[in-house]
Design a protein around this nucleic acid. Structure first.
Length: 568
RNA sequence: CGGGGUGUAGCUCAGCCUGGUAGAGCACUGUCUUCGGGAGGCAGGGGCCGGAAGUUCAAAUCUUCUCACCCCGACCA
């Protein structure tokens, strides 16, 4: 491809809207352009990368025996009403009507459609197992689209759905996908981790996420290699603290703490560590509000909390008026003592002594509080996010925490959709049995952002070679003033293409610095510079995007090097 | 949804407070010089100053409404 014919425009300035490095670089390198909030056009350069991702995913899915289909992006409301998700999915679902005022949605996922296919097409267990997949555009009306293609509203997803006659079959299908996903992310050249996960909106039993590791990731993941444990922090369990609380040393005392609504203000005022405080959060319950009590330095885990019987799901913080009603004081001074509503304590609070908590009285806290003496010793539950250094559920090690970008998610759905939609099949004994489903997603567009997030430097993108839009960039120096060089450059360009390499030939009449800067910004792995200088010696200058320096090579050696790298 | 912020050239932004001919850098066109790490000169093109209403002799600038985009989201940040 000739640069002058490729319609690529790069930006020197970083557009103000981009917050994270991958978004900035995607805009600067001309991979994408924004149309509207969460909507992006993939420009020629970006589309090349996207197609590479798709191709790898498609190859591995095919290899795993999955069958490619293409379902409609627009889906009738009736299907979603069958599974109850027309209501349950909420505002994330983009709804629309046709000219007859019939309701439709733009598909955010395709369980309903594929289950409909399955109940029509699948009659006998002999047709199983089967796994249908597609690579397709989805739309989710995100509350807050951000980070460019990482959390866009419209995006490309590979979604696959397996069907089995029994649980053993489902587990087998699930493992096949687990292996296929591992192969995909390895081939993409990304550093990733597989973690246990919450099954969330889609429902079902076992579920694991594939995360590309990156500091800007929206998810926190906890792992411990000694214990072979890895989980999204959303679901990583904490265990009940060992041991007993120390004997009280301090007397219960009520102290004035005006305008200290946060733990930070409280610890500053009283010269405490956050670990010596309790915080009490009032949330909505099924019948009445409930209080959740955590150690001051811990974070509430909304998913865990919402699963406690009596707590409203999804977790909803009570409004200030309710807090006043149940605690008798303004927000910021709630404490467990004297509350007339159910109170749930986190495991970590069990071993606390001589701690500080709100007094349920405006501008007052209690100090020297102890379980057993001032309040009943509580039964504790798992309410908080794990933190670095927590012991693992298996007890063999401690947890490390890293951030990740969720790029793949596999679920054992079981019968949640097939039952609601009456998708059954005949087994060997001639009985009708409900199909067991698995579903498996990969965020195709998100992978492009995640890859950049993990591979960049101050000059720009550094593509992993399997994703690079071009294998090699050919930069002639001052070609427009030397016919000899032009001929040599053209010949080299033709020869590289002949080798099956994707070549970007920078034929612009531009100064070398401009060409180097652009080549580095768009991140082409291999760079060949051809100049009058080297031409006489029959040499080219070679440099890999990750190299610090370039080196002169004989023309043939350079060609061989590129040939080999394109084969590997 | 709630809170905050920003809308001026393709991009980054100044001008707005204190109303009076719409600006800079980058990008773009032509031309000359330059030519191995984002060159320089000269000459150009490009703006419903997000939209509407209002105040005024006069509005990018003041007022109101509206739209779009960005950031933040219970404890903690």
């Amino acid at each position: 491809m000739r640069f002058t014919r490729f319609g690529l425009s790069t930006l020197r300035d970083t557009p103000a809207e981009a917050e994270i490095v991958s978004h900035q670089l995607m805009l600067r390198a001309g991979l994408i352009r924004r149309l509207s909030s969460g909507l992006f056009t993939w420009m020629p350069l970006g589309l090349r990368v996207l197609r590479k991702v798709e191709a790898i995913v498609r190859e591995e899915m095919d290899r795993a025996g999955a069958l490619e289909v293409l379902m409609p992006a627009v889906q009738p409301a009736e299907l979603w009403q069958e599974t109850g998700r027309w209501e349950k999915y909420g505002n994330l679902l983009l709804r629309m009507q046709d000219r007859h005022q019939r309701d439709y949605c733009f598909g955010p996922t395709h369980e309903e459609v594929i289950t409909d296919i399955a109940r029509r097409e699948l009659r006998s267990y002999k047709q199983l197992p089967v796994n249908f997949y597609q690579i397709q555009t989805k739309f989710r009306d995100e509350i807050r689209p951000r980070f460019g293609v990482m959390r866009a509203r419209e995006f490309t997803m590979k979604d696959a759905y397996s069907f089995d006659v029994d649980q053993a079959g489902l587990e087998q299908s699930y493992q096949v996908m687990h292996a296929a996903y591992t192969a995909i992310f390895e081939r993409l050249g990304l550093k990733f981790r597989v973690v246990d996960a919450d099954s969330g909106e889609i429902g079902g039993n076992r579920s694991q996420e594939f995360h590309v590791l990156a500091d800007s990731g929206e998810d926190a993941i906890a792992w411990c290699d000694e214990d072979n444990f890895a989980s999204n922090v959303e679901t990583a369990a904490t265990t009940a603290a060992d041991g007993e609380a120390l004997a009280p040393e301090l007397e219960l005392e009520k102290v004035s703490t005006p305008n200290t609504k946060t733990i930070e203000e409280l610890t500053t005022l009283l010269s405490l560590k956050p670990e010596q405080t309790l915080k009490t959060l009032i949330v909505e319950g099924d019948e009445q509000p409930v209080a959740l009590v955590l150690r001051g330095d811990h974070e509430l885990n909304a998913i865990k909390a919402a699963k406690i019987p009596g707590v409203a799901s999804p977790l909803t913080m009570s409004d200030p008026a309710t807090i006043v009603r149940v605690t008798g004081c303004k927000p910021g001074f709630a404490g467990p003592i004297g509350l007339k509503i159910p109170v749930f304590y986190d495991h970590a609070t069990k071993v606390m002594s001589d701690f500080v908590c709100g007094a349920n009285e405006a501008d007052m806290h209690l100090t020297g509080v102890n379980f057993g003496r001032d309040i009943d010793t509580p039964k504790t539950v798992d309410l908080r996010n794990v933190v670095e250094g927590d012991s693992t559920p298996g007890g063999k090690g401690t947890l490390s925490i890293a951030r990740g970008i969720e790029v793949g998610h596999i679920f054992q759905l079981g019968t949640s959709y097939s039952e609601a939609m009456n998708a059954t099949i005949q087994d060997q004994d001639g009985n009708d049995v409900t199909l067991l489903m698995g579903c498996y997603g990969i965020g195709i567009t998100r992978i492009v952002g995640a890859a950049i997030e993990q591979n960049n430097d101050e000059r720009g993108i550094i593509w992993p070679e399997p994703l690079a839009p071009f294998d090699v960039v050919l930069i002639p120096i001052n070609m427009h003033r030397s016919d000899t060089l032009r001929e040599a450059a053209e010949a080299l360009y033709a020869e590289l293409a002949e080798l099956g390499l994707d070549v970007l030939f920078d034929d612009r009449d531009a100064r070398p610095g401009v060409k180097f800067a652009d080549a580095e910004l768009i991140g082409i792995p291999h760079r060949l510079v051809i100049s009058d200088r080297g031409l006489e010696a029959g040499e080219l200058e070679y440099r890999h995007r990750r190299d610090d320096d370039s080196r002169m090579m004989k023309r043939e050696d350079a060609l061989n090097l590129l040939k080999e790298s394109s084969l590997s």
